[in-house]
Amino acid sequence: MASSFDKYQKRKLISSYISVVISISLVLFLLGCLGLLVINSKKVANHFKEQVVMTIYLNDTAKEVEVNQLKKSLAMSDYTKEAVYVSKEEAADYMKAETGEDFMDFVGYNPLKNSIDVYLNADFVTTEQLAEISNTLANKTFIEEIRYDNDLVELMNDNVKKISFWVLVISGVFTLIAVLLINSSIRLAVYSKRFIIKTMQMVGATKSFIRRPFIWTSVQLGIIGAIVALMGLAVVLYYLNLTFPELELLRNSILLVLLFVGIFVMGIVITWISTFIATQRFLNLKTDQLYY
């Protein structure tokens, strides 16, 4: 009979530990995913900014030497990520592929212009910087027109600011929720052993002696939960990097290491503090209060 009861208690204890580990790992995993978003939010924003194109249309009278000098100066400029020369023939072929019709059959000639598509570095994709670059280039006599989507740039920069603000707010709120959830799981685990705590206290055990095994057990569970969370986070990061290689998610290795270390340390610290507070609460209760 005693053996069956011991097995039941052991299964119940293991079940309690598993539920705590699952709770810790899930919370830390979600917190890690949010950390990845925070770390890479600027990189994602920069990726979209660098898709903005400034198109420089050239006069038909532009000399080859002038065009080559312009291409070289653009390639050497700080604001240029990439500059691509597009001839009027290439532009006509592109329009034909897009529309499925050859507009030159109706017009009789190619009215398009030779152009250079300039992809800018993210820091220069602002209305002020674009206007300054455009005004500087417009002084060249062989440049007929410079076009870019100013409304799109303004909208993109406004949205980046809003998204960055809300990501920080959500990160703070989610961190608080993570602490509360892990604390709740630990308190429930300690609550199931409140009578053992009081019995040890009644036979003369000191508070630090009673707390020590509870804290050590919780820290072990926190380490296991953190390892499980980090394994899941590594899998997510691996597949995200395969799906979006252009974002180069693994390039900033220092921040990624700090994130992983932070998640691991958080799993230990939160469980340690939560267990200390929970055991201290039951140590301070009177015997008759344990039933409420």
Score class of each variant (00 low, 15 high):
I215P: 11
T287K: 11
S185N: 06
I143T: 02
I270M: 01
E145A: 11
V84E: 15
V107M: 03
V173Q: 10
R212I: 09
I56L: 07
V160G: 05
S192A: 10
L120A: 09
S192F: 11
A178D: 04
M76W: 15
E66C: 08
L37I: 06
L221I: 02
K81G: 12
T141S: 11
M1W: 09
S134K: 04
L34P: 07
F214H: 08
V38H: 10
M104L: 12
A75D: 15
K140Y: 10
F142I: 02
K162W: 08
V203P: 15
A92M: 02
V20C: 05
V67G: 11
D123R: 13
N40R: 08
V86I: 15
I224H: 04
L250V: 04
V169I: 09
G108D: 01
V153R: 08
E89L: 04
K207F: 07
T55Q: 01
L247C: 01
S218M: 07
L112R: 00
K140A: 05
A226N: 04
P213Y: 02
N46F: 01
T99C: 03
K113F: 03
S41D: 04
A91Y: 02
D123I: 09
S134R: 09
V107R: 00
V118A: 03
E144T: 02
I177H: 07
E101R: 11
D102K: 00
L259I: 14
V257T: 12
A2S: 08
I18M: 13
N252G: 12
L283V: 05
D151Y: 13
M266N: 04
S253G: 08
T206S: 13
G225M: 03
E50W: 00
W216F: 15
K88A: 03
E154Y: 09
T61W: 15
L249K: 03
F142E: 02
L180Y: 10
I270N: 01
S208N: 14
S184T: 07
K161Q: 13
T243K: 13
D6N: 15
A138V: 00
T126I: 01
E132S: 13
V52H: 06
T99G: 04
W166T: 13
S25D: 00
S185Q: 04
W272C: 06
M95K: 15
T279W: 03
Q289P: 12
A97K: 14
I143C: 02
E82R: 07
K88P: 05
L34V: 01
M95C: 10
K193T: 12
Y191F: 15
N252E: 08
W166Q: 07
V160Y: 01
V84N: 14
F174E: 05
E89Q: 11
F195S: 02
R212G: 12
K88Y: 02
